[in-house]
Nucleic acid binder design. Structure first.
Lengths: 255, 255
DNA sequence: TCCAAGTTTGACCAAATGGTCCAGATCTGA
DNA sequence: TCAGATCTGGACCATTTGGTCAAACTTGGA
């Protein structure tokens, strides 16, 4: 995989440009995807008002199957380690057929990343100055832990990207994510100013929450090897949520 | 890279078996390396008492250069993404020459992992029931953060292995690491029992410390993109240490 | 000085892999 | 029902890449 930014375009045969791989460079696409996180999010079917039709349906299903398989394989082996053949097999599709839906491995990888982005960013979502800090922080922790439990591959995929130096994600990091990040820092700072929170450093508080919650997805093997448990165990999940929440709140609430 | 456990042996030409790639399967080697962390750690030169000699010296230097370059490349691209050619180039060595010192990419990867293991495990080292909890925990955090600052590639390499499901490291995790982990959990439990610590869950406390400190190495790009700083900034380092220590101690000390 | 052991590398090989082609199957709309 | 568009996958191709080989070069020591 050279630079995926380059030639991600080029639709399959002569087909109508598919929504999943339309114009704009990879990075730009990711930024756009990140910006539209909160929005309506139809995302699906290409056409206008026309009802789907069985063929389009099947195509969309196949596309989804490929995406799902690709997420699993990419998250485990990384973009280099994952072979198109392996993904195709995991998706129950022939390699040329996969390449029909996604014109290249890079395009597929980008699509996977794009799909995961919304999910990955969503928990940071809603908390405002008006909220109760303890509640808001607890909710954020819970949401992130649920992400780690229900979509660990997404978490791992993004962790992988970070480890690689975020070649594709950097624009997202310093664009949309930074915007949200700074907004949330401002909220925390406001809470501190209002005396609702101990004088914590907002960025570090957010980093801490991220680190503590993602750890259980990204280092799941280690957690499992050492404790014998994983977030899919109900009690371990509750225990973890309690431990992380307690840690963060004790550190952040006025004392 | 198929299963690196398999045929890691086979010395270069007919040369005397090199210490770096001697018998025992990869996994066993890693476990042994992990167990001997605290020990003397000569590790170097092959022969008995015979003085090094300029030639051996040069060889050892080259070996070290290769290992260093390999760490950098592997940590960035992963074992699949890194090509032997690229590593050789980074080390200023021809590809066949690299293969002369390390008979295969797998062997090289294993050597890199092995070398990093001691470093990675070392911070967990010394703290006992007799120590002051606050001091001991602060020291552990400081040591891990220094690791993240001075050897981020090592941290990233191991993070990468975790994300991959720790194919090579699993024996280490459930062997030596688990032993140390449980010992430390016992220490923490003793502190709790003695009333020197709030009733925290020992495993989660350790996970928290790991997560919080490694985050600054593994997600350095994100940290840098969002805060503009990195641990190599003196003030940011101090700030981070303070923030993490405060968070953990507030959460763990009796309140 | 000379040699045997150790070191270095250009040329080469086989396997894996991303991607293409094309022929045939299937569906859609008229 | 039929023509054209859309799918599907077996065969194929070019490139990359891990690894080998043999020949040449270096060097420590007798």
């Amino acid at each position: 995989m050279a630079d995926p930014i380059a030639k991600t375009v080029k639709p399959p045969r002569g087909a109508a440009a598919r929504p999943a791989v339309k114009g704009a460079s990879g990075a730009r696409k990711l930024v756009k995807a990140a910006q539209s996180v909160g929005e309506a999010g139809d995302g699906g079917a290409a056409g206008g008002a026309r009802p789907p039709g069985p063929r389009e349906r099947a195509g969309e299903a196949r596309r989804a199957a490929i995406l799902k398989a690709a997420l699993a394989v990419f998250a485990r082996l990384g973009p280099e380690g994952a072979s198109v053949e392996a993904i195709a097999q995991a998706a129950g599709v022939s390699k040329p057929n996969l390449l029909y839906y996604y014109p290249s491995k890079d395009a597929l990888y980008l699509a996977v990343l794009e799909q995961g982005l919304a999910l990955w960013l969503s928990p940071l979502g809603r908390f405002t100055e008006a909220d109760d800090p303890a509640e808001a922080i607890a909710a954020l922790i819970a949401a992130k832990l649920e992400m780690s439990r229900d979509h660990p591959e997404v978490s791992r995929l993004f962790a992988l990207e970070m480890l690689r130096g975020a070649p594709l994600l950097k624009p997202v990091l310093s664009g949309p994510l930074k915007a949200v990040f700074e907004a949330k820092c401002a909220v925390i700072a406001a809470w501190v100013a209002a005396g609702k929170l101990a004088p914590v450093d907002p960025p570090h508080l957010i980093f801490a929450i991220w680190a503590l919650t993602q750890h259980y997805a990204d280092f799941a093997v280690q957690v499992r090897a050492l404790s014998g448990k994983s977030l899919s165990d109900r009690t371990f999940m509750d225990e973890t949520r309690a431990a992380v929440t307690a840690l963060v709140l004790h550190g952040a609430l006025p004392h």
